[in-house]
Structure formats: C-alpha cells, structure tokens
Amino acid sequence: MTTESPGRVLLLNGASSSGKSSIGRALLPLLPDPWFLVPVDAISGMRSTVHTRELAEDEIAAMLNRTRRGYHRAVAALASQGNDVIMDYPLSEPWRLADLLEVLTGYDVTLVDVHCSEAELERREQVRQDRPAGLALSQSVFEHTDRDLVVDTTNHSPEACAQVIATSLARLDSSKAFDRLRARRSAGRPQA
C-alpha cells in the first residue's frame, strides 16, 4: 500500500525540564487527526542498561550519536507512511538540526520552541532528580533563531501551551522554519 502524502512532524524543541513531554501528552487529545508522540527519551529508554563491559567516553558519545541519528530516521519512517508525529527533542547540538534538515526534506515540519525561565528550569531539575544538575542550563537549544511558534512554560501550563499550538497549526504559513533554515543552509548562509 502506498501513501499519497507524508505525515506532518511537530518538533517540540527546548531544554531538558522545559515541559516538552507534558506539552506533547497534552496535545494528543487536542489534535483532530491521530498523532504519534515519539519522544527521544522513549527511544533511549529502549537501549539495554546492562553492559558486559564499561564503555569509554568516546564509545558512549558514539552510541548516543547513533541513537539520535536513528531517532531522526525512525520519525521520518513513521511520517513517510502518512503518520503525523510529535517529536520531543532538544536541538542542543548543531549537527542534530543539520541532520534533521536533511532527513526530513519534503516533510511538513512545524518547529515549536519551548521556553522556560532559568530559575524554573533549575527548580524542575531539582524536583525531578532524574537529570544531572545544570543540564537544562547547559543546553543551547535556540541557536537556529528561526521557528514557527514559541510557547513559554514558566507561567503557562502544558495544557495552555498545547492549546496555543493546536490552534495555531492550521493557521501557519506554508513557508515554515525548517524550509527557511534548509534554504539558508543550501545557500551557504548561517542558520541564524
């Protein structure tokens, strides 16, 4: 069976603890079509945690790189069959955006930056206790300087942010941030 058109991709980009996962879960009942919420943490959580030997730092870095590249392609595979996908993923390394621009060529990608104040990120990290202290503040996730939407979870609930996104999706211009970023990249201009 061949799909007539690829699915859409909604990329929730923000620092760890900014509320991406909560927004993604809140979006599912608001969107009229079936969507898959595919957070990168779910992919990482599928990896075995027991190893027969201790991995060196460069081996860990290579494993994480393979995992993230695989995640990009898993999302593309779902969307290639007409599935709409919500990504919960920080663009915290420049190569991640570059790879996604290539892998998701031809797809309707909506880039949503999820902002949160530094004080609130620190507070959430302390409450969660499942991330290294300072991780959120160490992530540079907005260097691309182009996006389709911005929501801020500092003083707004995930449900309120999800409502803004769901309402805005149909009204967004057909020229989206990923298209503009890809055009700048192919023209040899910086992403900013």
Rank of each mutant, 00 (worst) to 15 (best):
I60H: 09
I60S: 04
A62S: 09
A62C: 03
M63D: 11
L64S: 13
N65M: 04
N65K: 12
R66D: 14
T67S: 12
R68K: 11
R68V: 03
R68S: 05
G70C: 06
Y71M: 00
H72Q: 01
A74L: 15
A74R: 07
V75T: 09
V75N: 05
A76Y: 00
L78H: 14
L78G: 04
L78D: 00
A79M: 02
A79K: 10
S80C: 10
S80R: 15
G82N: 05
V85T: 09
I86Y: 13
M87L: 07
D88M: 07
Y89E: 01
P90C: 13
P90R: 09
P90D: 03
L91G: 02
S92Y: 04
S92W: 04
S92M: 01
E93I: 09
W95P: 03
W95F: 11
R96E: 01
A98Y: 00
A98S: 12
D99K: 03
L100A: 15
L101R: 10
L101M: 05
V103A: 13
G106E: 02
Y107G: 00
V112A: 14
V114N: 12
V114W: 11
H115V: 04
E118M: 01
A119P: 01
A119S: 15
L121Y: 07
R124H: 11
V127P: 00
R128E: 08
Q129A: 15
Q129K: 15
Q129L: 10
D130C: 09
R131C: 03
P132E: 12
P132H: 14
A133L: 07
A133D: 00
G134N: 07
G134E: 06
G134K: 10
G134Q: 03
A136I: 04
L137C: 08
Q139D: 02
S140A: 11
F142S: 10
E143G: 14
E143Y: 15
E143F: 15
H144K: 04
H144S: 13
T145D: 13
D146C: 08
D146Q: 15
R147L: 04
R147M: 02
D148M: 12
D148L: 09
D148F: 15
L149S: 10
V150A: 11
T153Q: 12
T153R: 12
T153D: 02
T154V: 07
T154E: 05
T154H: 08
S157P: 05
P158M: 08
E159L: 09
C161R: 10
A162W: 05
Q163W: 05
Q163S: 14
Q163P: 02
Q163F: 06
V164R: 13
I165A: 03
I165L: 04
A166Y: 09
T167V: 06
T167G: 04
T167W: 05
L169A: 11
A170M: 02
R171N: 10
D173K: 07
S174I: 05
S174H: 12
S174N: 10
S175R: 14
A177T: 11
A177H: 14
F178E: 01
D179F: 09
D179I: 12
R180A: 14
R180S: 10
L181P: 11
L181R: 15
L181C: 10
R182G: 00
A183P: 02
A183F: 07
A183L: 13
R184T: 02
R184Y: 06
R185P: 00
R185K: 13
R185C: 00
S186T: 13
S186C: 06
